[in-house]
Computed example of a mutant assay.
Amino acid sequence: MPNQQSSALRVPEADASVDPAEFRRVMGHFATGIVAVTAHDPLDGEPVGLAANSFTSVSLSPALVSLCVAHTSTTWPRIRRGGRFCVNILGERQQAACAQLARSGGDKFRDLDWSVAPGGLPVLPGALARLECSVTAEHPAGDHVIVVAQVHAMEAGPVGGDGPLLFYRGGYGGFRS
């Protein structure tokens, strides 16, 4: 049986030979889906949200997912303090909603079409799927934090509907199988 002890991990220092702009350009060759993370801020009851393209499943049992959020995000602390949040997997027709939630500051929900899910969280109509989650761990990673969250409820739209909203080489697009 492999050793499952936790070991201290070394926090890497920036490698001066890796230009951040070039790293972003090269990584842009990897197409990613986009999610909108939504919640209610318990302090003012307002809906809050952010867009992320670093989202993945982590474990089937228990059901865990992860996403990465910039340390500079002013929205993530508001989402986290609500306890639960919704991950909306965006469809190809939701580029405008993605852009609105990706911007910094301000009322990101102004003029944004949204509703309340049975669990009480704000959700985006037209999302391909939704997962209601709560944070189980946060891991610092460079200029981001890796958030690991447990899934408590989920639903997916009908098969054969819209394709996913994808981010590739600095632009948005869709995919049809």
Rank of each mutant, 00 (worst) to 15 (best):
D15N: 12
R80L: 15
E22Y: 09
G105I: 14
A137E: 03
E46F: 04
R78T: 03
P12K: 11
P12A: 06
S115I: 04
P42M: 08
Q100T: 09
A8K: 05
Y172K: 03
Q95G: 07
A156V: 14
G45L: 11
R24H: 13
L67G: 01
A14C: 04
V87H: 05
R130E: 05
L121H: 13
A117I: 08
E13T: 11
D41Q: 05
R130V: 13
G91P: 02
P12F: 11
N53F: 10
L121N: 07
C86F: 03
G91A: 14
F85I: 00
N88V: 01
W114T: 06
S66G: 01
G174M: 12
R25W: 09
G126Y: 11
D162F: 03
P47R: 14
T72E: 15
V37N: 00
L121R: 10
R176W: 13
G106Q: 03
C98H: 11
S104I: 01
C133E: 00
Q100W: 00
F175R: 12
V26H: 03
V116K: 15
V18G: 01
V123T: 15
C133N: 07
S66M: 10
M27T: 09
A102M: 12
R130H: 04
G45Y: 09
R24S: 09
L101T: 01
L50E: 02
R176T: 14
T56I: 04
A156P: 06
K108F: 00
V148Q: 10
S7A: 13
M27P: 02
T38A: 04
S177P: 13
F175M: 10
V65W: 00
W114K: 03
A63H: 05
S54Y: 01
K108N: 04
G157Q: 11
Q5F: 04
H139C: 11
C68I: 08
V159M: 14
S54T: 06
S73M: 06
R78A: 07
S115R: 15
G160A: 12
V58M: 04
L166D: 06
L165V: 12
Q150C: 08
C86S: 11
F175S: 02
V26T: 09
L131S: 06
R81C: 02
W76K: 00
L124I: 15
F55M: 06
P122D: 09
N53W: 10
F30K: 10
C86A: 14
V135L: 09
A153W: 13
R81Q: 02
R24P: 10
A137I: 02
L90V: 04
L166A: 08
P164D: 10
A31M: 05
Q95D: 12
A141R: 15
C86V: 15
V123A: 03
F85H: 02
D44L: 03
R80K: 13
P47G: 08
V37D: 07
E92T: 11
V159D: 15
C68R: 07
F109W: 02
I79T: 11
V35A: 07
S177Q: 11
G105Y: 07
P118F: 09
A16G: 02
R10V: 04
N53K: 10
S59K: 05
G142W: 08
T75R: 11
S66F: 05
A63D: 10
G126H: 08
S6V: 10
L50V: 05
G161D: 07
D111T: 12
